[in-house]
Design a protein around this nucleic acid. Structure first.
Lengths: 346, 346
DNA sequence: CTGGATTCCGTGAACGTTCACGAAGATGCT
DNA sequence: AGCATCTTCGTGAACGTTCACGGAATCCAG
């Protein structure tokens, strides 16, 4: 209405500016903004009007400082482009939101960043962290100090809570199923991590030797669980690796793959090479990402209930924050068991 | 070392506690924590030691209050389980991170929440919002006041910046390609939004009538662009819808689908019904999500460069925050053009 | 008109940190 | 020794909000 002398995008308006503009005091502005009782309707309207004209928004810092309890949790994710992680992240966001927490997410998949970088960025900004921190769990926990850290898919660390997966059980389920289907040349396709085999691959090897041991090496000429390593965790790379595998071991009749994304690539590579899945060769993925059933053939997989994983992570974190759960105790270290979901590819 | 009298998880340690424990002043603790110059190495070590023992972490609120400039942006996402959004979110996170911003994400896909709910939750917590707010753009902008809002996939609103997609161009590309391949019975499978057809479907209809108009209605007996609406945006629902479509219009020889996720379902439904894609019927998706090329047949799609979308959103936001871009101006309203990516399904 | 509720509003204090400045001690040079 | 310089550290102030409290105005019954 009046000529607008207000045109400084420099300094954002404070509560005092609004108070002055509306001809009231700080506290009244607070009351109006937060719809507290004990304020006349007309005054409230006047204050809100002034606030809107000044473009006033309460400082989250000042507010947080005085109220004290806004929980915000960091979510450290290796690669949002792998469908596994969004499914998990979605669950974490849902349950965290239900508890009134805010979720600050950092995807360290690009630009050569590591889990440690993500935690370093997140740490000063959040009250807790949930994340796939891998081998950086120790360092991350140290960086967080007393503030809780929930590490996923990691060997149990004393410094932080953990959600782990029972890969041994998973491998056993897959191998028994495949052998029951008559498969005898089973190969595991791993993704190369920072060093050595993944825990998933190791579990596969363990179970393989157990099984073959029971049968008796004399009876069986089956090779012990063979493991092939792809240089990177991606569908295209996996497709290539599968084709190379066929060259070096043409008699392979089953491939268990590090994760579903790679398994999708394997499927693609195999059919491109003229093989029929599952007639000629079986493929078993791992993770249970939603896209698995959209593939042709639909992917048989060792499914993790990703929503449960997210829910559990949030639950453990809540316990830690409330002090109901001790870091040493059993409750701080959960184990989730993947289950074999048989579809078409095996 | 000493018996630990410190065991109150109630009140977190403040800078003064650390100062007292280390026998120095506030400022020195600040210097140590932030590795500022002008502090003796030995003192710094002592302070850090004390801080660690007390589990001290600087309050982000106090820090933010005094330094003033921590940018954090909210990311409002309808459904992280649709692979479209993670691909986009990943890009936003990457570029925001590169600028030193924090990203607070809210997925309002669960629990019947709406974009407005998400913005309400986010608003007091962030300096700006990027999101698929749909028809709530107006309300959301009002809630944000002066703080910038970048709305995606929305008609241009005066109240906020926008990133839009040129669906008209996309539809034209698809339709011309399909017609050039000899397809004449083209149907669009839409997802039902809050009301009426989606912008994508409308663009399809427009182009269809343009094309048929040019040819001349006398010459052609082709039906005008027919649109079928699926009740929900999901692969399973789309598969079902595709099968129903075949019943009502068995002569359909091409389906253009609302998005890739649904197109994946359509592929599945079609092959389940015994049809061969693309021999019997062509399928064109939209979005260009990574999983498209993993499907069998690989999905032909109107690809959006999702990383570019994210980059652009962050870029526009940066301009708004810096004051380089005015809301009215051309720069605040970008249009991104999908391109036809021909793979196997059409 | 008086008294007590009731409604509405304003003032000091506090939250925990950093910035600007200055003081004290150590060191070097003449 | 005397002075200047550098290093190291401490003190008041400020950031913007809410909480706890108290004061002023209004209302109604007696």
């Amino acid at each position: 209405m009046s000529p607008q002398p207000e045109r400084q995008p420099r300094k954002p308006a404070t509560i005092l500016d609004v108070a002055a503009a509306a001809g009231v005091s700080r506290q009244t502005v607070t009351r109006a903004m937060n719809a507290m009782p004990g304020i006349k309707a007309s005054t409230m309207e006047r204050v809100l009007q002034a606030a809107h004209e000044l473009g006033y928004a309460p400082s989250r810092f000042a507010r947080g400082l005085v109220q004290g309890s806004e929980v915000s949790v960091g979510l450290a994710i290796p690669d949002l482009e792998n469908p596994y992680f969004p499914a998990f992240a979605s669950s974490v966001v849902e349950h965290a939101t239900a508890r009134g927490w805010h979720v600050v997410v950092d995807d360290f998949g690009h630009g050569g960043r590591t889990a440690m970088d993500a935690v370093e960025r997140l740490a000063p900004q959040v009250d807790a962290i949930i994340g796939y921190v891998g081998e950086d769990a120790d360092g991350a926990a140290h960086l967080m100090g007393r503030r809780p850290l929930v590490a996923l898919d990691n060997a149990v660390q004393p410094a932080c809570a953990s959600i782990d997966f029972d890969y041994h059980h998973a491998a056993a389920e897959a191998i028994h199923y495949l052998r029951a289907s008559g498969r005898r040349r089973i190969v595991y396709l791993d993704a190369s991590g920072r060093g050595g085999l993944s825990n998933r691959a190791k579990a596969f090897q363990d179970v393989m030797s157990e099984v073959l041991g029971k049968i008796g090496s004399s009876v069986s000429r089956e090779p012990t669980g063979h493991v092939v390593v792809a240089p990177r965790d991606s569908a295209a790379v996996a497709a290539h690796a599968a084709q190379e595998l066929l060259l070096s071991r043409p008699d392979t009749d089953a491939i268990v793959v590090f994760n579903d994304l790679m398994a999708a690539g394997v499927l693609k590579g195999l059919t491109a090479a003229g093989l029929r899945v599952p007639a000629d060769i079986a493929v078993v993925g791992m993770d249970g990402i939603p896209l698995g059933e959209l593939l042709t053939p639909a992917l048989t997989t060792l499914a993790l209930d990703l929503r449960e994983v997210g829910r559990t992570a949030v639950e453990v974190l809540a316990g830690l924050l409330a002090g109901d759960i001790e870091l040493g105790g059993r409750a701080a270290h959960r184990i989730i068991r993947p289950t074999l979901r048989v579809r078409e590819s095996a």
